[in-house]
Amino acid sequence: MQNNFPNEGMSVIVKTITRFTVWLIFLYGLYIVIHGHLSPGGGFAGGVIVALSYVHLTLAYGKNFVLDRINKFAMNSLEAIAAILIVLTGIVGLWLVGRFLANFLGIGTLYTLLSAGYIPILNIFICVKVGMGLYLVFYYLASFKPQEG
């Protein structure tokens, strides 16, 4: 996809460096989330890192470049859907085990990636929620123009 807004954002040096670093930041955030039950981190920290990769892109290329590639309505909906899914996980626990937000999956073997029951699932939902939400807050604050209203 070509850049429709080449004059916005920062200098060419920053844009080139951003092209190398932004996916590393994004993948690091995903790693933090997926290994949340094994290593330090988790849904909140990983979600913040994922949101920061978007913020990084917005700062370097300008917000119209990012808005060309992502759908703001989809981000808003994803955030709300993730919140609903967290509550639905709790209701499934209520249905299968008898307590709200109870661990309804087996806990598996310690130290393996697929272990700890529902903790990785909740981490992923929280990551989607925190990442989308923090980026949206950043977007709303960045696009606020007091002289408009």
């Binding site: 949340g36 290593s39 988790g42 806990i107």
Partner: peptide, 15 residues
């Protein structure tokens, strides 16, 4: 043993 999570901080905040 109870949550199957190696990271105890995660096991506290998510279980």
């Amino acid at each position: 043993a109870e949550t199957g999570s190696q990271n105890i901080v995660t096991s506290v905040i998510l279980n």
